[in-house]
Protein backbone atom coordinates (compact mmCIF):
# COMPACT_ATOMS: atom_id res chain seq x y z
CA UNK A 1 0.00 0.00 0.00
CA UNK A 2 1.32 3.44 -0.93
CA UNK A 3 2.28 5.60 2.02
CA UNK A 4 0.60 8.96 2.35
CA UNK A 5 3.10 11.71 1.61
CA UNK A 6 0.85 14.76 1.95
CA UNK A 7 -2.31 14.79 4.00
CA UNK A 8 -4.35 17.98 4.07
CA UNK A 9 -7.41 18.10 6.28
CA UNK A 10 -9.75 21.09 6.09
CA UNK A 11 -6.86 23.50 5.79
CA UNK A 12 -7.96 27.12 5.76
CA UNK A 13 -6.10 30.38 5.51
CA UNK A 14 -8.28 33.43 5.72
CA UNK A 15 -6.86 36.89 5.09
CA UNK A 16 -8.57 40.08 6.19
CA UNK A 17 -9.46 40.92 2.59
CA UNK A 18 -11.36 37.65 2.22
CA UNK A 19 -8.66 36.01 0.13
CA UNK A 20 -6.85 32.78 0.95
CA UNK A 21 -8.16 29.23 0.73
CA UNK A 22 -10.85 27.35 2.58
CA UNK A 23 -11.40 23.78 3.76
CA UNK A 24 -8.92 22.20 1.41
CA UNK A 25 -8.79 18.42 1.68
CA UNK A 26 -6.25 16.54 -0.36
CA UNK A 27 -4.25 13.36 0.14
CA UNK A 28 -1.25 12.68 -2.05
CA UNK A 29 0.42 9.30 -2.03
CA UNK A 30 4.17 8.73 -2.02
CA UNK A 31 5.57 8.85 -5.55
CA UNK A 32 2.50 10.56 -6.92
CA UNK A 33 2.60 13.72 -9.01
CA UNK A 34 -0.20 16.06 -8.06
CA UNK A 35 -1.13 19.05 -10.17
CA UNK A 36 -2.70 22.05 -8.51
CA UNK A 37 -4.51 24.32 -10.91
CA UNK A 38 -6.49 27.50 -10.68
CA UNK A 39 -6.68 31.02 -12.04
CA UNK A 40 -4.42 33.76 -10.67
CA UNK A 41 -5.36 34.67 -7.11
CA UNK A 42 -7.25 31.43 -6.54
CA UNK A 43 -5.18 30.63 -3.45
CA UNK A 44 -2.79 28.01 -4.85
CA UNK A 45 0.40 29.63 -3.57
CA UNK A 46 -1.26 30.29 -0.20
CA UNK A 47 -1.87 26.57 0.19
CA UNK A 48 1.68 25.67 -0.81
CA UNK A 49 3.12 28.29 1.55
CA UNK A 50 1.15 26.75 4.41
CA UNK A 51 2.42 23.29 3.51
CA UNK A 52 6.06 24.38 3.47
CA UNK A 53 5.71 26.33 6.72
CA UNK A 54 5.99 29.89 5.48
CA UNK A 55 2.54 30.91 6.71
CA UNK A 56 0.36 29.60 9.51
CA UNK A 57 -3.08 28.15 8.76
CA UNK A 58 -6.13 29.84 10.25
CA UNK A 59 -7.63 26.39 10.86
CA UNK A 60 -7.27 22.79 9.82
CA UNK A 61 -4.27 20.51 9.85
CA UNK A 62 -1.84 18.99 7.40
CA UNK A 63 1.10 16.66 7.59
CA UNK A 64 3.99 15.49 5.46
CA UNK A 65 4.77 11.82 6.01
CA UNK A 66 2.93 12.17 9.32
CA UNK A 67 4.87 15.22 10.55
CA UNK A 68 2.80 18.35 11.17
CA UNK A 69 3.47 21.12 8.67
CA UNK A 70 5.72 23.94 9.81
CA UNK A 71 7.82 21.71 12.06
CA UNK A 72 11.51 21.06 11.47
CA UNK A 73 10.67 17.35 11.03
CA UNK A 74 8.20 18.16 8.23
CA UNK A 75 10.71 20.47 6.57
CA UNK A 76 13.20 17.60 6.36
CA UNK A 77 10.90 15.95 3.81
CA UNK A 78 10.65 18.84 1.39
CA UNK A 79 12.34 20.70 -1.40
CA UNK A 80 10.61 23.91 -2.41
CA UNK A 81 10.85 26.12 -5.43
CA UNK A 82 8.93 29.30 -4.63
CA UNK A 83 6.88 31.20 -7.15
CA UNK A 84 8.87 34.30 -6.25
CA UNK A 85 12.36 32.88 -6.52
CA UNK A 86 15.40 35.02 -5.82
CA UNK A 87 18.68 34.00 -4.35
CA UNK A 88 21.51 35.80 -2.59
CA UNK A 89 22.95 37.75 -5.49
CA UNK A 90 26.27 38.32 -3.73
CA UNK A 91 26.87 34.54 -3.79
CA UNK A 92 27.79 32.36 -6.76
CA UNK A 93 25.38 29.69 -7.94
CA UNK A 94 27.51 26.97 -6.32
CA UNK A 95 27.62 28.90 -3.05
CA UNK A 96 23.83 29.23 -2.99
CA UNK A 97 23.41 25.47 -3.42
CA UNK A 98 26.11 24.90 -0.78
CA UNK A 99 24.27 27.22 1.61
CA UNK A 100 21.05 25.23 1.15
CA UNK A 101 22.93 21.96 1.57
CA UNK A 102 24.45 23.15 4.84
CA UNK A 103 21.08 24.40 6.07
CA UNK A 104 19.75 20.91 5.36
CA UNK A 105 22.56 19.45 7.46
CA UNK A 106 24.38 17.68 4.61
CA UNK A 107 27.98 16.77 5.38
CA UNK A 108 30.77 18.46 3.47
CA UNK A 109 31.66 15.45 1.34
CA UNK A 110 28.09 14.85 0.19
CA UNK A 111 27.61 18.57 -0.42
CA UNK A 112 30.68 18.89 -2.61
CA UNK A 113 29.68 15.81 -4.60
CA UNK A 114 26.07 16.97 -5.09
CA UNK A 115 26.77 20.55 -6.17
CA UNK A 116 28.32 19.88 -9.61
CA UNK A 117 25.89 17.01 -10.22
CA UNK A 118 22.89 19.17 -9.54
CA UNK A 119 24.16 22.20 -11.42
CA UNK A 120 24.66 19.97 -14.46
CA UNK A 121 21.29 18.36 -14.02
CA UNK A 122 19.40 21.64 -14.02
CA UNK A 123 21.43 23.05 -16.89
CA UNK A 124 23.60 25.59 -15.07
CA UNK A 125 26.87 23.69 -15.40
CA UNK A 126 30.00 25.83 -15.23
CA UNK A 127 27.98 29.00 -14.73
CA UNK A 128 27.73 27.89 -11.13
CA UNK A 129 30.96 29.84 -10.63
CA UNK A 130 29.25 33.11 -11.56
CA UNK A 131 27.60 35.41 -9.08
CA UNK A 132 23.79 35.08 -9.00
CA UNK A 133 23.42 38.77 -9.90
CA UNK A 134 24.72 37.82 -13.37
CA UNK A 135 22.00 35.20 -13.84
CA UNK A 136 18.91 35.68 -15.99
CA UNK A 137 15.52 34.92 -14.46
CA UNK A 138 15.52 31.56 -16.16
CA UNK A 139 18.95 30.72 -14.73
CA UNK A 140 17.77 31.71 -11.27
CA UNK A 141 14.78 29.42 -11.68
CA UNK A 142 17.10 26.56 -12.62
CA UNK A 143 19.20 27.40 -9.57
CA UNK A 144 16.04 27.25 -7.48
CA UNK A 145 15.41 23.73 -8.75
CA UNK A 146 18.96 22.74 -7.78
CA UNK A 147 18.40 24.16 -4.28
CA UNK A 148 15.10 22.31 -3.98
CA UNK A 149 16.78 19.04 -4.92
CA UNK A 150 20.00 19.40 -2.94
CA UNK A 151 18.97 17.32 0.06
CA UNK A 152 17.32 14.67 -2.13
CA UNK A 153 13.94 15.24 -0.45
CA UNK A 154 11.05 12.79 -0.94
CA UNK A 155 8.52 15.61 -1.55
CA UNK A 156 8.95 18.48 -3.98
CA UNK A 157 6.73 21.53 -3.91
CA UNK A 158 7.21 23.36 -7.17
CA UNK A 159 5.37 26.62 -7.64
CA UNK A 160 5.41 27.49 -11.36
CA UNK A 161 8.74 25.72 -11.94
CA UNK A 162 9.19 26.83 -15.54
CA UNK A 163 7.46 30.21 -15.62
CA UNK A 164 10.66 32.06 -16.58
CA UNK A 165 12.08 29.48 -18.95
CA UNK A 166 12.17 29.46 -22.74
CA UNK A 167 10.63 26.49 -24.62
CA UNK A 168 13.88 24.52 -24.45
CA UNK A 169 14.13 25.19 -20.73
CA UNK A 170 10.52 24.10 -20.24
CA UNK A 171 11.23 20.86 -22.03
CA UNK A 172 14.30 20.35 -19.82
CA UNK A 173 12.22 20.89 -16.71
CA UNK A 174 9.51 18.55 -17.95
CA UNK A 175 12.12 15.86 -18.59
CA UNK A 176 13.64 16.48 -15.16
CA UNK A 177 10.25 16.20 -13.46
CA UNK A 178 9.53 12.92 -15.27
CA UNK A 179 12.89 11.57 -14.08
CA UNK A 180 12.17 12.68 -10.54
CA UNK A 181 8.80 11.00 -10.66
CA UNK A 182 10.44 7.80 -11.86
CA UNK A 183 12.85 8.08 -8.94
CA UNK A 184 9.82 7.92 -6.66
CA UNK A 185 9.60 11.58 -5.63
CA UNK A 186 6.25 12.97 -4.64
CA UNK A 187 5.66 16.07 -6.71
CA UNK A 188 3.18 18.80 -5.84
CA UNK A 189 3.08 21.00 -8.88
CA UNK A 190 1.49 24.43 -9.07
CA UNK A 191 1.47 25.49 -12.66
CA UNK A 192 -0.34 27.56 -15.22
CA UNK A 193 1.31 25.50 -17.92
CA UNK A 194 -1.45 22.97 -18.29
CA UNK A 195 0.43 20.89 -20.82
CA UNK A 196 3.13 20.43 -18.20
CA UNK A 197 0.57 19.29 -15.63
CA UNK A 198 -1.15 17.00 -18.14
CA UNK A 199 2.13 15.36 -19.06
CA UNK A 200 3.48 14.84 -15.58
CA UNK A 201 0.67 14.64 -13.06
CA UNK A 202 -1.33 11.60 -12.03
CA UNK A 203 -4.02 13.62 -10.30
CA UNK A 204 -5.13 17.20 -10.38
CA UNK A 205 -7.27 19.57 -8.35
CA UNK A 206 -8.78 22.81 -9.50
CA UNK A 207 -8.91 25.64 -7.01
CA UNK A 208 -11.09 28.68 -7.53
CA UNK A 209 -11.76 31.45 -5.02
CA UNK A 210 -9.94 29.46 -2.39
CA UNK A 211 -12.01 26.31 -2.70
CA UNK A 212 -11.43 23.04 -4.50
CA UNK A 213 -13.83 23.01 -7.40
CA UNK A 214 -12.95 19.66 -8.95
CA UNK A 215 -10.36 16.97 -8.47
CA UNK A 216 -9.50 13.54 -9.81
CA UNK A 217 -7.04 11.75 -12.05
CA UNK A 218 -6.10 13.46 -15.30
CA UNK A 219 -7.73 10.55 -17.17
CA UNK A 220 -10.93 10.93 -15.19
CA UNK A 221 -11.36 14.61 -15.79
CA UNK A 222 -10.51 14.32 -19.48
CA UNK A 223 -12.16 11.02 -20.28
CA UNK A 224 -15.68 12.31 -19.78
CA UNK A 225 -14.99 14.98 -22.33
CA UNK A 226 -13.77 12.77 -25.25
CA UNK A 227 -15.69 13.68 -28.36
CA UNK A 228 -15.59 12.47 -31.95
CA UNK A 229 -15.93 14.48 -35.13
CA UNK A 230 -17.32 13.19 -38.44
CA UNK A 231 -17.00 15.10 -41.71
CA UNK A 232 -19.70 13.99 -44.07
CA UNK A 233 -20.41 14.82 -47.72
CA UNK A 234 -23.87 14.62 -49.36
CA UNK A 235 -25.69 15.38 -46.10
CA UNK A 236 -29.47 15.54 -46.02
CA UNK A 237 -31.23 17.12 -43.01
CA UNK A 238 -33.40 14.07 -42.29
CA UNK A 239 -30.35 11.86 -41.87
CA UNK A 240 -29.43 13.17 -38.40
CA UNK A 241 -32.59 12.00 -36.51
CA UNK A 242 -32.25 8.67 -38.26
CA UNK A 243 -28.61 8.28 -37.26
CA UNK A 244 -29.41 9.14 -33.64
CA UNK A 245 -32.27 6.70 -33.51
CA UNK A 246 -30.39 3.87 -35.21
CA UNK A 247 -27.04 4.24 -33.41
CA UNK A 248 -28.39 5.34 -30.02
CA UNK A 249 -25.68 8.05 -29.92
CA UNK A 250 -26.55 11.72 -29.38
CA UNK A 251 -25.01 13.13 -32.57
CA UNK A 252 -25.35 16.81 -33.34
CA UNK A 253 -23.90 19.42 -35.63
CA UNK A 254 -20.41 20.25 -34.45
CA UNK A 255 -19.99 23.65 -32.87
CA UNK A 256 -16.25 23.72 -32.52
CA UNK A 257 -14.50 22.94 -35.80
CA UNK A 258 -10.88 22.59 -36.88
CA UNK A 259 -9.30 25.79 -38.16
CA UNK A 260 -10.49 26.81 -41.64
CA UNK A 261 -13.55 24.52 -41.61
CA UNK A 262 -17.14 25.65 -41.70
CA UNK A 263 -20.38 23.78 -41.30
CA UNK A 264 -22.84 23.60 -44.19
CA UNK A 265 -26.54 23.19 -43.62
CA UNK A 266 -28.36 22.62 -46.88
CA UNK A 267 -29.02 19.56 -48.94
CA UNK A 268 -25.79 18.04 -50.31
CA UNK A 269 -23.48 20.19 -48.17
CA UNK A 270 -20.43 18.98 -46.35
CA UNK A 271 -21.19 18.94 -42.68
CA UNK A 272 -19.42 18.21 -39.40
CA UNK A 273 -21.23 16.11 -36.82
CA UNK A 274 -20.00 15.43 -33.31
CA UNK A 275 -20.80 13.15 -30.42
CA UNK A 276 -19.37 12.27 -27.04
CA UNK A 277 -18.59 8.57 -27.36
CA UNK A 278 -16.97 6.27 -24.82
CA UNK A 279 -17.01 3.08 -26.87
CA UNK A 280 -15.09 2.89 -30.12
CA UNK A 281 -17.48 0.21 -31.42
CA UNK A 282 -20.15 2.87 -31.55
CA UNK A 283 -17.87 4.90 -33.80
CA UNK A 284 -17.60 1.92 -36.16
CA UNK A 285 -21.40 1.58 -36.22
CA UNK A 286 -21.93 5.25 -37.04
CA UNK A 287 -19.38 5.23 -39.89
CA UNK A 288 -21.01 2.09 -41.35
CA UNK A 289 -24.47 3.68 -41.18
CA UNK A 290 -23.22 6.88 -42.87
CA UNK A 291 -21.52 5.00 -45.71
CA UNK A 292 -24.51 2.67 -46.15
CA UNK A 293 -26.75 5.72 -46.62
CA UNK A 294 -24.66 6.69 -49.64
CA UNK A 295 -22.95 9.65 -48.01
CA UNK A 296 -19.21 10.32 -48.19
CA UNK A 297 -17.23 10.08 -45.00
CA UNK A 298 -14.20 12.35 -45.28
CA UNK A 299 -12.83 12.31 -41.76
CA UNK A 300 -13.49 10.59 -38.46
CA UNK A 301 -11.35 11.46 -35.52
CA UNK A 302 -11.43 11.76 -31.77
CA UNK A 303 -10.86 15.21 -30.34
CA UNK A 304 -8.93 14.46 -27.22
CA UNK A 305 -9.82 17.22 -24.80
CA UNK A 306 -6.78 19.02 -23.53
CA UNK A 307 -6.48 20.04 -19.93
CA UNK A 308 -6.46 23.61 -21.10
CA UNK A 309 -9.97 23.27 -22.55
CA UNK A 310 -11.13 21.46 -19.42
CA UNK A 311 -9.66 24.23 -17.27
CA UNK A 312 -11.29 26.97 -19.35
CA UNK A 313 -14.62 25.21 -19.23
CA UNK A 314 -14.34 24.59 -15.50
CA UNK A 315 -13.64 28.18 -14.53
CA UNK A 316 -15.70 29.92 -17.20
CA UNK A 317 -18.49 32.03 -15.79
CA UNK A 318 -17.01 31.97 -12.31
CA UNK A 319 -15.79 35.02 -10.51
CA UNK A 320 -12.08 34.72 -9.93
CA UNK A 321 -9.82 36.18 -7.34
CA UNK A 322 -12.71 36.90 -5.04
CA UNK A 323 -14.04 39.92 -6.93
CA UNK A 324 -17.59 40.84 -6.17
CA UNK A 325 -19.84 40.58 -9.16
Amino acid sequence: MTQTAIHIDNLTKQYDNGRGCRNVQITVGQGEAFGFLGPNGAGKSTLVKMLVGLITPTSGTASLFGDAIGTVAAKRHIGYLPELYRYQEWLTGSEVVRLHARLCGLDKQTTERRIPELLDRVGIGNRGKDRVKQYSKGMQQRLGLACALVADPPILFLDEPSSALDPVGRLDVRTLLRELKQEGKTIFLNSHLLEEVENICDRIALLNNGEILRHGTVQQVLHAQTRWLFKIGGYTPEILPWLIETSGVQLHRAESLPDGERNGGSMGDEIWLEAVIDNEQQVGLITTLIVNQGMTLYYVYPVRERLEEWFMEAVSGLSHRGEQE
Binding site: K75, Y85, L103
Partner: peptide
Protein backbone atom coordinates in the same frame (compact mmCIF):
# COMPACT_ATOMS: atom_id res chain seq x y z
CA UNK B 1 10.04 41.17 -0.24
CA UNK B 2 12.33 39.95 -3.00
CA UNK B 3 11.83 36.26 -2.22
CA UNK B 4 15.21 35.12 -0.87
CA UNK B 5 13.75 34.14 2.47
CA UNK B 6 10.99 31.96 1.00
CA UNK B 7 13.50 29.38 -0.17
CA UNK B 8 15.82 29.45 2.83
CA UNK B 9 13.22 29.37 5.60
CA UNK B 10 11.72 26.15 4.31
CA UNK B 11 14.95 24.44 5.29
CA UNK B 12 14.91 22.26 8.41
CA UNK B 13 16.13 24.85 10.88
CA UNK B 14 14.05 26.63 13.52
Amino acid sequence: EIGIMQATLTRPIP
